[in-house]
Simulated assay, not measured.
Amino acid sequence: MTQTGKSIYELDTPTLLLDQGKLEANIRDMANFAKENGLMLRPHIKTHKSSKIAKMQLEAGAVGITTAKIGEAEVMARAGIKDILIAYPIAAEKKVNRLIELLGQEVHLKVAVDNLEQLGLLDQFMSKTPHQLEVWIKVNSGLNRCGVEPGSEAVQLAKNIALKKKLKLGGIFTHAGHSYAAPSLAEIEKIGLLEGKAVAESAEACEREGIPIAVRSVGSTPTYKIAGKVKGINEVRPGNAVFFDAIQAGLGVTEIDRCALTVLAAVAGKYPNRKTIVLDTGSKVLCLDQGAHGNKSVKGFGHVVGHSEITIERLSEEHGIASIEGETSLCLNDVVQIIPNHACPVVNLFDEYVIHQEGVVTDVWDIEARGKVT
């Protein structure tokens, strides 16, 4: 068991480290933005997958949480968190039965919907229960993944929800994940404005038809501070902003020193004739992500803190093969911290965070929802 009071550099490697001071600062920043702009905050927990961190976000002012999958929602509900949006379209009976179990635990549950067939199935399965399920319409704001088109398609879906006895419409939301492929901050700004308008204008169109829309929600760490300021938006759902990572820094969304999550790694081999070192962190630790949705906004497979001369050029399962530009002070068994390119999938590979303050271990927190992908 990891002992408090140790230097992080005494730990075995690879280890997932979380800087508590940076984490708390990032949580405050999200909460302050929401408060200052009169918005509700519903952070996405798929980044951290920890009930401890989710509760910190709730204590800072969040109204509830967002999850990607039912498995994450089940973990959070067991931890006592009762206001949960599952931002994923669900239609299979075996999955709806799990939703019904959550409703039976008095979880205030909301589920994404984006097509008529799905509505019919949800209503059919819910008709066998005493519960009514709250659904939120997902609109497509440019990612072209899930979601109806803004405007008339959203209105048509809303009208059909109104006809279902076991479903009630609670909100309209979107996710501008394509902002991760933006080539510049100016393009991120443009995407964020369109994201906010897609939701706000769809909500306005529904209300012109006499269908009230209580929640108008936007997400995506690169855009939430832009879309959240669009008139008519009343909720934001940032996820990655709890930690940040090298991709966010590469996009210009944050500074690299705000990244709270790092991987502790050791030099497993040094090969001067090839100008390379090998780190004990391969794809099973750092993942192969170099920029979501098409933009390679980072160099290599992780940022080696304090060693700009090192670039992790390629990963095999257990090895990080890094090139040396010029000279390096790193020797065999030396230990470094690596900021992952994409924090979310890296977290999903570990069982726990080792918490530290200025490099001294203070605690260990379980990542209870890791691997919960159903």
Rank of each mutant, 00 (worst) to 15 (best):
K6F: 00
L18R: 06
D19Y: 00
Q20N: 05
L23M: 10
N37G: 08
G38K: 11
L41R: 07
H48Q: 12
H48V: 15
S51P: 12
K52R: 15
I53C: 00
K55P: 01
M56G: 06
A60M: 03
I65L: 15
A73Q: 09
D83A: 09
I86C: 03
Y88P: 00
E93L: 14
V96H: 08
V96C: 05
V96L: 12
N97S: 11
N97V: 05
G104R: 10
V107Y: 09
H108C: 01
V113C: 14
V113A: 12
N115C: 14
M126C: 04
T129Q: 11
E134K: 06
V135H: 06
V139Y: 04
S141F: 00
G142T: 01
A158M: 04
A158C: 04
A158Q: 01
A158G: 02
A162L: 13
L167I: 10
K168G: 11
G171V: 06
T174Y: 03
H178S: 03
Y180M: 02
L185V: 10
L185D: 05
K190A: 07
G192F: 14
L194V: 05
K197P: 01
E201I: 00
E201G: 01
S202F: 01
E209P: 05
P212E: 03
S217F: 07
V218E: 08
P222G: 06
Y224I: 05
Y224V: 02
K225H: 15
A227H: 10
V236Q: 09
P238R: 01
G239R: 01
A241Y: 12
A241H: 04
Q248H: 10
I256W: 00
C259D: 07
C259Y: 05
T262P: 00
Y271P: 05
K275N: 15
T276S: 02
T276R: 00
I277W: 00
I277P: 00
T281R: 11
A292I: 06
H293R: 02
K299R: 10
G302M: 09
G302S: 10
V304M: 07
E309A: 13
I310F: 09
S316D: 13
H319E: 15
I321P: 14
E325G: 14
E327Q: 10
E327I: 09
T328V: 13
C331R: 14
C331Y: 07
L332C: 09
I339E: 11
H342W: 02
A343T: 01
V346A: 15
V347Y: 10
V347H: 12
N348T: 13
D351F: 13
V360M: 08
I367E: 06
K372I: 12
